[in-house]
Amino acid sequence: MNEKNRAFLKWAGGKYKLTEQINERLPKAKRLIEPFVGAGSVFLNSDFEEYVLNDINPDLIEMYRIIKRKPKQFIQDAKVYFQDEFNKEEVYYKLRSEFNKSDDIYLRSLLFLYLNRHGYNGLCRYNKSGGFNVPFGRYKKPYFPETELLFFAEKAKKATFTCKPYQKLFLYLRDTDVLYCDPPYVPLSKSASFTSYATQGFTLDDQAQLAKLARESKAAVLLSNHDTTLTQELYREAHCDKISVSRTISSKSSDRKPVAELFAFFPAKK
């Protein structure tokens, strides 16, 4: 694919910079399944006939479904929140509180995009009570991603969006499927643990279970993770290779040092 397509969400750990490397490692297949779709950069920069895009975050998946169903209405309504009057700290916290109290799926979807673009560093984080708790980002003029939203909506015609535990995605695989798994990464140190993307977290037991499911899957599976002693052990039966990538989560550019990223490929069972 010649021109790369950006996701409309800011996303810590997003795969935009690695889509070429990922596509090189994905075998040809009819359907791509992503149990941890996140902002969808792999989906947006790959070419499969069908997609199953899953995430444990219901706010994310409900928003994707709405954008697929009525993109022009969503864009019109979401754009309101990108006027200058909404880029103020007190307004941000008021709307964040409104988001956390609301059961209205459509309003939550609009505010999810607002919070993503106005919140700190593209983080998506919830407290143990399920409340979104990312602080105000203090950006001069947050970008409204209209072009990216329209591209996403058009490509979403090929996609089915699901909100299930990752284990469920392995239950009904076809021989013509391939899975790309981009789970929350194994922490590089004890102090680097980041498990609050969803209220349930993603434990080391989950890392082991995902590796087992990939190993036993009848469809091909490509996994990405940090290159650590643990992941090398978990993926020891896979075809593994690694690349160096820059860290993007740290708020200080001086701390964004290259880290080793591991790709583990489990071929389809014959």
Rank of each mutant, 00 (worst) to 15 (best):
Y51E: 03
V52M: 01
V52Q: 00
L53H: 12
L53P: 10
N54P: 03
N54C: 03
D55S: 10
D55A: 08
I56H: 02
I56E: 01
N57Q: 06
D59T: 02
L60H: 07
L60C: 07
L60G: 04
L60M: 06
L60W: 09
I61V: 14
I61M: 09
E62I: 09
M63Y: 08
Y64S: 08
Y64G: 05
Y64H: 13
Y64P: 04
Y64A: 08
R65M: 13
I66L: 15
I66D: 12
I67Y: 10
R69W: 11
K70I: 12
K72W: 13
K72T: 08
K72C: 00
K72I: 02
K72D: 15
Q73K: 13
F74S: 00
F74C: 00
F74M: 01
I75P: 07
D77G: 07
D77I: 03
K79H: 12
K79D: 05
Y81L: 05
F82S: 10
F82V: 03
Q83F: 01
Q83L: 02
E85Q: 15
E85C: 12
E85S: 13
E85N: 04
N87R: 02
K88W: 10
K88F: 14
E89C: 06
E89P: 01
E90T: 15
V91Y: 13
V91T: 01
V91L: 11
V91W: 11
Y92S: 13
Y92C: 13
Y93K: 04
Y93N: 12
Y93P: 03
Y93F: 14
K94S: 15
L95H: 00
L95G: 04
R96M: 11
R96D: 04
R96W: 10
R96F: 08
S97N: 14
E98Y: 06
F99E: 01
F99L: 05
F99C: 07
N100I: 15
N100G: 05
N100W: 08
K101F: 09
S102A: 15
D103G: 10
D103W: 06
D104K: 01
Y106I: 03
Y106M: 04
L107T: 02
L107M: 11
R108D: 01
R108P: 01
S109H: 00
S109F: 02
S109L: 07
S109Q: 02
L110Q: 08
L110Y: 01
L111I: 00
L111S: 10
F112R: 03
Y114T: 09
Y114K: 05
Y114E: 02
L115C: 06
N116G: 04
H118P: 01
H118V: 00
H118W: 12
Y120V: 02
N121D: 07
L123C: 04
L123D: 06
C124A: 09
C124V: 15
Y126Q: 15
Y126V: 14
N127L: 14
K128P: 08
K128C: 06
K128A: 10
K128Y: 12
K128R: 15
S129P: 06
G130C: 14
G130E: 10
G130Y: 12
G131F: 07
G131R: 00
